[in-house]
């Protein structure tokens, strides 16, 4: 409204853009992709627009212990693509084959690490991949509730749990910091049961 409040808004926007620089970079990238060629006008315009978006639609800060391991990310992407192929043709076959269609089941899966970011990534990937669909999550307990279409086909309830936990381990190996890996014991035992974490909410 007034000059003062406008200046304040601009200042807080710039500060937030500094804090949320990954979001700014991401939005600029989307903008450049939308225009289809890399030019200074696109880069500057996209960055300006990204700052405006980050200012007007602020997101809460996410505290997480994240890192980036290229090899593990590559492994995650490859296994994800393969799983997506297999899952798609499985569901297509279930749809097209004659005979009754399975009703499905709901399975609980306890995740190793109930941190928000990893929970979200795992849930999104689990919905796309191994014959499962996330219907409900419990953030506090780090639990996913999955609907499974063909329980026998995916190795029973235990098979589904193991599959999703392996998926989560791949996600953690790709993106989680070493402290998280050490705490959850992912790197040491590839397919172990998760240790009962005594009432720990989210990652510190």
């Amino acid at each position: 409204m007034s000059d003062q409040s406008l200046r304040e808004l601009v200042r807080s926007g710039l500060r937030r853009a500094l804090v949320q620089w990954p979001a700014v970079v991401l939005l600029t990238g989307v903008w450049v992709l939308l225009w289809g060629d890399v030019s200074w006008a696109n880069l500057v315009g996209g960055a300006a627009l990204a700052v405006v978006v980050v200012t007007l639609f602020p997101l809460p800060p996410v505290r997480t212990e994240a890192t980036f391991r290229p090899v593990a990310v590559g492994r995650l992407v490859v296994s994800f693509a393969a799983d997506l192929f297999v899952a798609s043709f499985q569901v297509a076959w279930l749809a097209l084959r004659p005979g009754p269609v399975p009703q499905g089941a709901v399975v609980q899966v306890r995740l190793h690490n109930p941190d928000d970011v990893f929970l979200t990534v795992t849930a999104v990937l689990a919905t796309l991949v191994p014959g499962s669909l996330v219907v409900e999550t419990s953030r506090r307990r780090g639990t996913l509730f999955l609907h499974v279409l063909d329980v026998e086909g995916s190795g029973g309830v235990e098979g589904v749990r193991r599959h999703v936990q392996q998926l989560e381990e791949r996600v953690l190996r790709a993106f989680a910091a070493a402290a998280v890996l050490e705490r959850t014991g992912v790197a040491v035992r590839p397919t172990g049961r998760p240790d009962p974490r005594a009432g720990k909410g989210a990652g510190a």
Binding site: G104, A105, V106, S138
Partner: peptide, 12 residues
């Protein structure tokens, strides 16, 4: 739903 482990969904 055969094994229905929905149980009580805690209001999060």
């Amino acid at each position: 739903l055969h094994p229905n482990e929905m149980g009580e969904v805690p209001d999060d």
